[in-house]
Each structure stands twice: as structure tokens, then as C-alpha cells.
Amino acid sequence: MLEISNLSVSYGAIHAIHNVSLKVNRGEIVSLIGANGAGKTTILRTISGLKKADEGEIRFEQTDLRKTEPSKIIRLKLAHVPEGRHIFPQMTVEENLEMGAFADQKDMSATMEDVYNRFSRLKERKRQLAGTLSGGEQQMLAVGRALMAKPKMILMDEPSMGLSPLLVKEIFSIIKEVNQNGITILLVEQNAKMALSISNRAYVMETGKISMEGNAGELLKDVRVKKAYLGQ
């Protein structure tokens, strides 16, 4: 569904991503784990066109994303829940969800009802300004906003960041549920254990390169992964 080949990205003279290739098949949860600064977020931002690539190819289904105007990518039904949530703080919860459907307003109220059923907290707070929500609620809102676009695939960047262990569990079960409803997921996480536990496959990144890849269950048992990312 999503295929990246030989991707290189840099910030000025600094190479952030070097010759990375990865693939996500329809229906999978694939996670991208690795230390802070390994380039995981940069990969997601490059897929969404927020960052320009130097070289390589990014294909989503039939479309070459490097040649796609960034604001048109959501119309291909590829959504992105960015790191740090990036909700619209001065808009209400409901307005934020409406913004999620900006590119495709068809059946908006039905989709919103679905989102509210999934996240009852959001429904309770729909008239509240999004900036006043707690971190966990903001993360739910960010996911809800992405779902409003009725995506086929979601790029999810550090959904567990800054959340309490209980909320981390909740957000991961939501991701799993979203995936079971047929949405493919590329997940970037520092919480490697949690990410691997819900993923089909995973890639391990180290300083801009992919150092390991494979079945999530096997990586969870791999001695090197255990040592480096699972603190065991």
C-alpha cells in the first residue's frame, strides 16, 4: 500500500534519513521504532509532504507522493496524526473534528457520530476549546480528527508521548481497534514494547538508517532489540 524506496532527507548539511526503504501492506500495523533523533518523525513528515525529500521514491497505492501537493495527500485517504497532537487549540472539539473532514465533507455527521461513539469524552466536551483538553483527550481528538477524513491508512507519530501508563494502554487499544476496522497503520513509537505488541511487522531505525526489520513478535524477542530498546 505504501512503499518507500531509497529515501534520503536532509536538514541543510545534516543527513537525517539515509537510503531508507520500507513497505506497509494493506491491513497491517507496521511500527517504526528507534531512539530519539533516529529520523522516525522525519520519515512520516516526508511522506506527508511537510518535509521535502532529497532522493528516493514514496508511493502510496498508485500515486507518487513526492509529486503530490501536500494538501492533496489527505484526498488520497492517507491521514497523519502528528507528533505532539497539533490540534487547533482555539477551536472547539467539534470544530476540530469538522476540520478533519475539510477535504471530504461527504457523510460528515455520520462519521462524527462514529468518532463520538468511539471517544465518548470528546462528545461530552464538544463545545469546549480544544486547547483546554488534557493531554490524553487531545491525543484522542488528534486521532478522531484523522478518522474524520475516512482514511485508508493513518501515519501515527508517538501517540503515547506524555501520557500516563493507563492512557498509553487505552490509546494502543484504540489503534488496534482502528486497524481492525480496516485502516492500515504506520506507527512511530519510542515505546517499543507497546508498539511491537500490537504490530505485525516493524523496522528499527538508528541514526537515519534502518538497522533491523522483521516480524514484530520476533523483534520483541531479539536480544539486540531487548538490550537497546526494551531495557532488558
Binding site: 494538501s71 492533496k72 484526498r75 477535504a103 465533507q105
Partner: peptide, 24 residues
Amino acid sequence: TKIGKAMRSVPQDRDASILVGINV
């Protein structure tokens, strides 16, 4: 209006605006 909402969202968060499909 849609354009009006986009005019409000872009100052609040430019990246998120692009991600929901707004041509900034």
C-alpha cells in the same frame, strides 16, 4: 464557511492545516 475556517486554522497550526487538506 470552509475558507473562513481555514483562515482561522492556519494561524493556529500550519502543519495540521496542511494535513487536513488546506492549501496554505
